[in-house]
Nucleic acid binder design. Structure first.
Lengths: 145, 145
DNA sequence: CTCATTGCAAAGGATTTGCACTAAT
DNA sequence: ATTAGTGCAAATCCTTTGCAATGAG
């Protein structure tokens, strides 16, 4: 849990960056969440925890978190970015519910290999890939709450 | 060539929408291009053809083109959208060169089936998917021009 | 004490919208 | 004549940046 938070604090110290209350609070929200949060989501959660921070600070801290490798940025084509803890998981894809916005992860080795092969065939040096499957999740399919 | 343009004109008439010079010019640019254009690209091309149109009109016309099914909207996570002719091609994926921005298409049946299967496994009713492979294209890899 | 961070407000880029004006039917 | 489209500017949404005040080391 808080091991990731500790890692972030260490990262900050190692890079001579001030360890501020805001940074820790923001990191705690992002690293402690299972979801794929937007910057606004993070700010909202901070507010509800009574440790509000400016949106600009949220963005700036997320940038540090991303550079530290503890957080990964995602763009599902929704018009805004989402951020996710970089777990041990090497790489995974996403299912996005177009009704509730919920994001589900999955992993697929074969897909991994396929993209490498495809890039080669097109003489591309592959840097990465992104697969999003859009649809309606189980809950939303069953109808309104 | 102009068969797609004709189809758009027919679409407009069938829906009692005025067939304006701007709409035809914009449709001509998008439907006649092999690339994946941004709204700004379209406006630039119109200007160079001497038939400039306001950006707002470009966006509004692209919306009609999208609704007509003749054009497909794409979001490669670049911070803006691109538009592509909806060719006969049922579905295809994209390779995006992170240096020059060039987009290459490819098709892969197996991928298609895989995503359907994966959606099922997660109790999602699949609506579609999107795969983008990021990398450096052959030309850009060989170094600057 | 010194320098980086914070917060707010202003700036930015892409896209949308309000509205007076113009054009299509 | 009607009705919808156009252009421009203003407005929006997400994200970034400038700058004075604040806090970490």
């Amino acid at each position: 849990m808080s091991s990731a938070l500790d890692a972030f604090a260490s990262y900050l110290r190692d890079h001579n960056l001030p360890v501020t209350a805001q940074r820790l609070a923001i990191a705690d929200v992002v690293l402690g969440s299972e979801s794929h949060l937007s910057a606004a989501d993070v700010a909202r959660e901070l507010r509800s925890r009574g440790s509000a921070a400016g949106l600009a600070t949220v963005y700036r801290t997320i940038e540090v978190l991303t550079r530290s490798g503890l957080v990964v940025e995602r763009d599902f084509g929704e018009g805004f970015k989402r951020y996710e803890t970089a777990r041990d998981t090497p790489h995974h894809e996403h299912l996005l519910c177009s009704v509730c916005g919920r994001v589900t992860e999955f992993r697929n080795e074969r897909l991994e290999r396929m993209t490498t092969l495809i890039a080669e065939q097109h003489h591309f040096s592959r840097q990465g890939h992104r697969l999003v499957i859009y649809g309606t999740c189980d809950q939303c399919r069953r109808g309104p709450i």
